[in-house]
Every structure is written in C-alpha cells, then in structure tokens.
C-alpha cells in the first residue's frame, strides 16, 4: 500500500510541475469564468429581448406568448459543458500519455521495476494518483463555477441546484477519466515515438467530433436555421408524429450518437444543467435514473479499459 501511495504522490507532483499541464488547466479555469461571465451578459440581453418581443406580440394582439427564458447563466452557456468536455478530455489525454511515455523515455520504468515492487502496485499508484488529480481538477472547476456564478451572475443557488452541479461534475470526472484511461492504454500498447498520442487524438476526434457531427447532420430539424419543423409551423406533437414515420432513420442517427462518450456526457450534462428543456422539475437523482443509459455509456468503457490496461501492464515484458 505504501509503495502505491509513494507512486501516486509522485504522479501528482510530477503533473503539477509540468508547465504544459498547468497551462491547459489554467486555460480551462479561465474559460469557465469567461463562459459564466458571457452567460450572464447573455441572460440580461435575452431578458431585454424577450420583453421587447412580448410587447410587440401583445401589441399585435397575440395571446400565445413564448415562455420566459431561463435565468440561470449556466443553462444559457452551452459552451460551458463543451469547454469542460473538450479541454478536460485533452488534459486527461496528456496525463494518460505522460504517465507512461515519460517513464519510458527517461528509463525510469526500469528503475522502478528493479525495486521490490509489484507491477500491479505500480499501475494502481499511477491510476490512483492521476484519477485523484482529475477529481481535484473537477473540484477546482466546481469551486470556481459556484463562486463566479453567485458573485457575478447574481444567482442564488438552491440546494437542488447545488446537487445538480455536483452530479454534473461527477459526470465530467467520469468523462475525463475515460479519456485518461484510453490514453494510458494506447500508450502502453504503442511504444514507438509519439504514435500513441497521435492515435489517441484520432480516437478523440472520432468520439468527440465525428460521431456527434454525423448525428447532427442527420438531424432533419437541423437543416434549416431556426429548425425545419418550426419553419414548417409544426408543434411538438405534430413533429413527433412525423418523426415517428422515420423510425429507422432516427434509430440509426441515435445509434451513431450513442457510440460517442462525448454525446453521453453532453446528454447527462444538458439535462442536469437545464440546457435541455423538460427536466426542470426532476431532482438530480431522477435525472441520473432517466439518463442511466448515458451514465452506463461513460462508466462501462471506463471499467473495461481499466481492466485491459491492467492486462497489458502486467503481461508486457518490455514496457
């Protein structure tokens, strides 16, 4: 146990001394703040805009008025989730890669393994240290978010809101952990030059951009600005009726999206942060239950890849 802690501690210290890692972390924190500030500005302008529109509509004698926009800057700033997803994933990829490639390059793997230490202690230490670091990073972003949301956004967070945020950061931790483990696994498998890093970046591109992008472009509603169905003047019920006729097409689209952990993370996050309408009255637990498939989409690959990493690490003679 103590060897494991020594290794975990070394991992954390090593990363915190890594200027590149620190730069990405600072970038992530700054973007979180910027996103909250811009979200706040947007909320104010939207409310003004909304009021003007309502005045106009009332003057035209309309009674069917659009609902008031959400007052929570987080829900307006979809980009917040995206930054965490994107930069957080890159951060995790760098951690996973360095955890193996640095030791390999400097020959320290051999030094460590020539000590009286088991291989599983070494990988446990690496996993433990880095996952703890990812948890700390999420904690830091959570703290910054809550502080700036209350201080700048003027939003008083209820207990339910706080729990939702905690759930969001738990999901974000799982998402980052997944990319950390993918990166660790691939780096263990590919020892030649920086091929491992390039390969993980390609995997990341496929998951984080390509699958969601294909899903997006197959979305009929996305084809016209403002939405295809809305431009055709359909309400939700009518839209559903039409979409039902394209079951196969929609299943295919959904299937492609579900291959992507990024989409899983996005779906849970949008529900938790109120970006996606329809979850306003649910508690965080209820949302987690409703979105169990997405949660599993993050959790299961994490477990499988951790096991595979163990396997490779314990069996491979030449690390």
């Amino acid at each position: 146990m103590s060897e494991m802690i020594v290794i975990a501690r070394k991992e954390i210290k090593d990363s915190l001394n890594n200027k590149f890692f620190l730069s990405i972390l600072i970038l992530l924190l700054i973007l979180t703040i910027v996103s909250i500030v811009l979200g706040t500005l947007q909320v104010h302008s939207q409310i003004a805009q909304y009021n003007r529109s309502i005045e106009f509509l009332k003057s035209m004698g309309k009674t069917n008025l659009p609902p008031m926009p959400s007052l929570n800057p987080l829900s307006v700033s979809k980009s917040f989730v995206n930054y965490v997803a994107m930069i957080g994933a890159l951060l995790a990829i760098v951690l996973g890669n360095y955890a193996v490639s640095k030791e390999r390059k400097n020959g320290t793997f051999k030094l460590i393994l020539s000590r009286s230490i088991y291989r599983d202690q070494l990988i446990n230490g690496k996993l433990g240290g880095n996952l703890l670091l990812l948890a700390l990073i999420n904690f830091a972003i959570a703290a910054v978010t809550i502080i700036f949301l209350t201080a700048l956004g003027g939003v008083s967070l209820s207990q339910a809101d706080l729990i939702r945020l905690i759930f969001f950061f738990a999901a974000s931790f799982l998402y980052m952990a997944l990319f950390f483990i993918i990166s660790l696994f691939v780096t263990l498998l590919l020892p030649y030059k920086n091929y491992a890093l390039l390969t993980v970046i390609i995997i990341w591109l496929v998951f984080a951009f390509i699958f969601p992008q294909i899903g997006d472009t197959m979305d009929m509603d996305n084809q016209l600005p403002g939405g295809f169905f809305a431009s055709m003047g359909l309400n939700r019920a009518q839209e559903k009726q039409i979409v039902n006729k394209f079951k196969f097409y929609e299943t295919l689209r959904n299937g492609i999206e579900e291959l992507s952990p990024t989409k899983h993370f996005e779906r849970i996050s949008f529900a938790l942060l109120g970006v996606k309408p329809g979850f306003k009255n649910n508690t965080a637990w209820e949302i987690a239950n409703l979105k169990w498939l997405n949660l599993a989409g993050l959790l299961v690959p994490n477990i499988i890849l951790s096991m595979l990493s163990y396997l490779v690490f314990l069996r491979r003679e030449n690390l």
Partner: peptide
C-alpha cells in the same frame, strides 16, 4: 462558441 453565445436569439 464564445461568439455564438453572444448572438441574439430573436423571436
């Protein structure tokens, strides 16, 4: 994304 968040969504 930053630019997008600063767009006006008019009704």
């Amino acid at each position: 994304q930053l630019a997008e968040s600063q767009k006006n969504y008019v009704y």
